[in-house]
């Protein structure tokens, strides 16, 4: 049932399964097997089961021919964002990708490209946890005894971004770091742009993170090509509702002559005291900074 793992790294296109394997009842997976020392696609064929998702097939491989095949998963319901991988070259959740919705022929499953490999389909996503530390915290006024009052229209804006399940596929697909490793230390990525936007649009927040997001988190590196939006499994409109509004807010702060003139005349600072504090407390991204 299982073919020998074959090294197909250079030419997966030619790796068509034997004729007998392409019938409806067989599913062929080319799974990346490897670690920091290198790797290759290994091909496996299994009888297909009705309604399966790619993660099911991976599980069957683990229980059968490939017991040490590494992959992350938790909920198997598209809710935790653990099982991100690149299926047929596109970032997707393995647990939400049905085998029967993919075009016939072998399915390639590779780890996320942007992050260092640990083993097989598992990558080291600590980049994202390091970036998460750099976002200045929510800072509301002290709460009244009865709790804060907010309107649904205001919370809905932030709620869209809080749907994020941290699958990090937007980070993976973003060419700023996917194709340019050297940008990583100075680029927080779309996942954290929506986090910043969420806080900036929070009706109770008192921080101003515009300079921070422009100067240190690399908002200007994004060229709004929208791949993050295309891959987001939560259908968050990352570019339209977070990145572009943040770019516009930066324009308000830095590129709007009318605003600048107004501030000059009224002698107002565009940074609030809290923001100034946040920026001076900002440790600056350093590639080797430990999370702890």
């Amino acid at each position: 049932m299982t073919t020998e793992p074959a090294a197909l790294a250079s030419e997966p296109e030619t790796a068509t399964a034997p004729v007998a394997d392409t019938t409806d009842s067989t599913v062929t997976l080319q799974v990346w097997r490897g670690d920091p020392d290198g790797g290759a696609f290994a091909e496996y064929s299994l009888p297909a089961n009705e309604g399966e998702v790619v993660l099911d097939v991976v599980h069957r491989l683990q229980a059968g021919p490939a017991p040490d095949l590494a992959c992350r998963w938790n909920c198997k319901a598209g809710k935790c964002g653990s099982c991100s991988a690149e299926i047929n070259g596109r970032p997707r959740l393995m647990c939400m990708t049905r085998v029967d919705e993919l075009p016939p022929g072998p399915i390639t499953v590779a780890p996320m490209r942007t992050f260092p490999i640990i083993r097989d389909l598992v990558t080291d996503v600590s980049f994202n946890f390091a970036m998460a530390k750099l976002v200045p915290a929510f800072s509301p006024p002290p709460p009244p005894a009865e709790g804060y009052r907010m309107q649904q229209i205001d919370v809905e804006r932030g709620q869209e971004f809080r749907k994020c399940i941290e699958c990090f596929m937007c980070q993976d697909v973003c060419h700023v770091i996917r194709d340019h490793e050297e940008n990583k230390p100075a680029y927080a990525g779309p996942r954290f742009f929506i986090r910043i936007a969420e806080l900036e649009m929070h009706p109770l927040d008192t921080n101003d993170r515009r300079d921070l997001v422009r100067q240190q988190m690399g908002l200007g590196m994004c060229n709004i090509t929208k791949c993050c939006t295309e891959v987001c499994p939560e259908h968050i409109k990352i570019t339209d509702n977070a990145i572009i509004p943040m770019k516009e807010r930066v324009v308000d702060a830095d590129f709007d002559p009318v605003g600048w003139l107004g501030r000059k005349i009224l002698r107002r600072s565009k940074t609030s005291p809290t923001e100034t504090a946040a920026i001076s407390a900002y440790p600056g991204p350093s590639p080797s900074a430990p999370a702890g």
């Binding site: 670690d35 683990q62 017991p67 040490d68 095949l69 590494a70 992959c71 640990i118 083993r119 097989d120 598992v122």
Partner: peptide
């Protein structure tokens, strides 16, 4: 297999 991320 080895000890690194070995689901088995």
């Amino acid at each position: 297999g080895g000890r690194a991320y070995n689901p088995g």
